[in-house]
Design a protein around this nucleic acid. Sequence first.
DNA 1: CTGTGGATGTTGAGATCTCAAGCAATCGGG
DNA 2: CCCGATTGCTTGAGATCTCAACATCCACAG
Lengths: 155, 155
Amino acid sequence: MTRWLDEDEQRTWRAFLGATRLVFDQLDRELQRDSSLPHGYYEILVRLSEAPERALRMSALADRSQSSRSRLSHAVARLEENGWVRRETCPTDKRGQIARLTDEGFAALAAAAPGHVDGVRAHVFDPLTPEQVVQLGEISTALVDALQRSDDPPC
Amino acid sequence: MTRWLDEDEQRTWRAFLGATRLVFDQLDRELQRDSSLPHGYYEILVRLSEAPERALRMSALADRSQSSRSRLSHAVARLEENGWVRRETCPTDKRGQIARLTDEGFAALAAAAPGHVDGVRAHVFDPLTPEQVVQLGEISTALVDALQRSDDPPC
DNA sequence: CTGTGGATGTTGAGATCTCAAGCAATCGGG
DNA sequence: CCCGATTGCTTGAGATCTCAACATCCACAG
């Protein structure tokens, strides 16, 4: 019953697998080497830095960084040890926790960002033509839409 | 000095991050749920199943599955415990190890494959137009080329 | 023949991720 | 007001990944 991938689809799928693995491994390595920061943690800092007051509810932060609650909890715990994030209980809902970026955290992010952006340019944008960049954006959006819609109950 | 990402580039990059994270997390979850196999291990079985005699040198296997030697070593050790892969020393080079897919391993792969292919179709190919699938292939190839070339010494 | 450098894999420690279980606070129907 | 269901987040255990150190073997120059 299964519709197997034909030869072209195979090639495409494997190229995609290879590209994403190579790109993210490379960026992770660079970020780790230059800033002792895994990419996931970098992203948490970015999202916090953009939020008003540099603070977000854990759940909101999880959504914006496509992270599971559990992963985020562990990650923030580690960032808190580094003094880059502080946790506060939400005044209106005592279940809630608010993660707030500290000045040290902001400084760490500011130090890491230029190198990381260079890496993203070098490994993603530069190898692509402008049209391909546009296409990549559209493709990614389509995939995200498909997967997020599939979370919704179908009725 | 850093050329920051403009607004469009930001959107594209974040969509790409989100899409890949959602797609691979989803496929990983499905594979784990249905076959108790992380995606990386599944890929090792696939590569072995395609090789002549269903066997490959560790280094060749590492190259084809975009995996580090260390990761592969741990993974094959785990697959060997399951009885899905066997390791033999290479007759012509005593440093070398040959990983060979067992019949049980092949059966496990055969059981996992249909569901996984369905997932790939559902989460990657179906949401895209045929043109986008072609574009995705070209983009991925370009990224792979750029990163693999950058490994080579520049002189 | 020998020793040095390179290549192949493995290992162990530490970090991160996942899954499931758990706790605490809130919500909502009765 | 009260209790069961739900939400928000954390925790612990187990699995995987990374990095660096290591042991082994090959290749080749001297």
